[in-house]
Design a protein around this nucleic acid. Structure first.
Lengths: 342, 342
DNA sequence: CTGAAAGCGCTTACAG
DNA sequence: CTGAAAGCGCTTACAG
């Protein structure tokens, strides 16, 4: 036998038709148990593998999911957000468990990417991890859905969104962490992060934050909210400097992401401000490095394992033609030292 | 038109044969420029995408690379090594630039994974990132190569290895960082990490380490080398405790990875040993969190961007039937504070 | 339970 | 430069 073996080779060896081989290997109940076993044994022996291209072409689906990671076009070789990385891990595992392969692609949210994978039949659906500016992404999401692309987004649930998304409960997470700061005796809490509709996740965290303050009878001070366009360490440092520049009499900072928080802590430290003694700092995401920050960062953990499973399962339901709905996962405060505990 | 458009739909609209459409879209020089343009315009208009399954089936290659990440079967939901994560990023980008899609899979190095992707025609070749225990992986690598699987491994270059691998120059890296410690006035340097053939990367780092000591006229003390089976933070902490338990009169620790180094620093810190005043600590990899460790960790950086490109390019050469050879990339010392600089 | 046959949507040698 | 035709390796309705 030259080249890769085909189902015809097996049929010949087993003395059956090629159709029977195909049925046996797909586990069709139409094949007698004995024939099936014989065919399977031969397949194993000659190391036969079904040609996925032929199979996908014929069946019109590829048993493959495309994972699209948004790549900021401005920062060329920027690090991937470590939180997305752990999501990637859990999505990979979850799809493998469901028997799906995972195609990973870093996309600049440019004009033509949408649905390419599904249109070209390389994938049966898309999971979107990060999408840049929500207001910019919106029309593209709309088009995606209109074209009938199976697609699930990781991110906030937004009023009137066209697509299905899975996200953590950002409002609850923001509420819980602010409440924790209040319990630790902090009352003048700054918020670092973009709260515009461009970033509905951060906006939701801010809403939870404000709610917690109000529920504790604390007036929200607009001056203590600092924009931070990107969620990176230097931007967090810059935001903290801005707060010091404003002479804000704060005793805590809630940064909308861990990377921002770590940057803020560094800036404070550089100026001789002690964390948490002078100013407590908390973040959001619980990325691995947060545990190693100095001081270790109190933050809000999202359940990335559960999230990955939910993303995959929701997408598979969509692929199977079932209706799907957006869902939120609970967020959990992880207390370490930067909030002044202990 | 119902369903996805095919090349026949375009042929009909353009008034040419389907074969001509296929040629035009693949950029064949056999098609007149005018016809090509007309066809391209129509394709764009009706949002036609070539069916990759049909194309791959006919052409017998998928323009897809499979990336296999080794998953430790023991630790269920362990974090992926952050260094591999940045490799993943650079491999994704490099393959995208070459027009290849990337299939990502976490594999337990079990019996049957080998070559599955290529046998089933889902991928044209494999990049292996992490492979667990080298001595255990060896027979499997051998089989892979014998079966004619196109495959490039990230890792050490080992005498007599059956496959092609791309790795950083671990000996040189180990040499350079130890030399740096010596320049900082340290002479009694412990090494934390597995130096058995199971882990040729760490073994090579150790060889470089010993060479640097010898070149400085320092006798290597076998008692100051501590095994560390996994490359994780708790294992690093345990190793540091072991060194203290042995009452080793050391003034520095070279940990074979950043995770080990960070763990070691934590253990030292817990016992009131100051880093770097009492004991300097250095690592290897330059993972993102190392910059945020306290003190910031001096380490050896590997060029993951270049590595990703080299892995992809080497694999593509193999796929094109060209001969390929293993290659090493230089490693670079990154000086921060844990080594006692400044 | 099994086989013969059609067909998934392309690519490419062959003929003109 | 273009077209007609074969064929990549499966899956599955259809017939028995």
């Amino acid at each position: 036998m030259k080249g890769k073996p085909t189902s015809f080779d097996i049929a010949y060896k087993a003395g059956v038709s090629q159709a029977t081989v195909s049925r046996a290997l797909r586990g069709s109940p139409l094949v007698s148990i004995e024939t099936r076993r014989r065919i399977q044994a031969i397949a194993k022996e000659i190391n036969y593998k079904v040609d996925k291209n032929a199979s996908a072409l014929r069946r019109q689906h590829s048993e493959t999911i495309a994972l699209l990671l948004f790549e900021d076009p401005t920062s060329d070789d920027s690090l991937i957000n470590p939180f997305f990385l752990s999501m990637l891990g859990s999505i990979t595992r979850a799809s493998a468990r469901r028997g799906y392969d995972l195609l990973v692609s870093f996309q600049q949210f440019s004009d033509d990417w949408h649905a390419d994978f599904q249109d070209s039949h390389k994938a049966d659906g898309i999971i979107m991890l990060g999408y840049g500016d929500y207001t910019e992404a919106l029309p593209k999401l709309q088009r995606l859905v209109e074209q009938g692309t199976h697609c699930v987004r990781w991110g906030a649930i937004v009023d009137g969104q066209p697509d299905v998304s899975i996200g953590c409960d950002n409002v609850q997470g923001g509420y819980a962490i602010t409440q924790h700061l209040i319990e630790m005796g902090r009352r003048k809490i700054a918020f670092v992060g973009d709260v515009s509709p461009s970033c509905p996740e951060f906006a939701a965290r801010y809403r939870g934050h404000c709610q917690a303050l109000e529920d504790a009878g604390i007036v929200v001070c607009a001056d203590w909210q600092v924009e931070a366009r990107d969620s990176t360490e230097p931007v967090g440092a810059e935001a903290a400097r801005e707060l010091m520049h404003r002479d804000a009499p704060i005793d805590a900072i809630f940064a909308a992401s861990d990377l921002l928080a770590i940057g803020a802590m560094r800036a404070l430290n550089d100026r001789g401000v002690r964390v948490p003694e002078d100013i407590a700092v908390v973040g959001f995401d619980d990325v691995p490095m947060s545990a190693f920050a100095s001081p270790p960062l109190t933050t809000v953990a999202q359940d990335s394992k559960r999230a990955g499973e939910l993303l995959v399962d929701t997408l598979l339901q969509q692929i199977q033609g079932q209706p799907t709905a957006s869902q939120m996962l609970p967020a959990r405060v992880v207390v370490r030292r930067s909030c002044g505990s202990r």
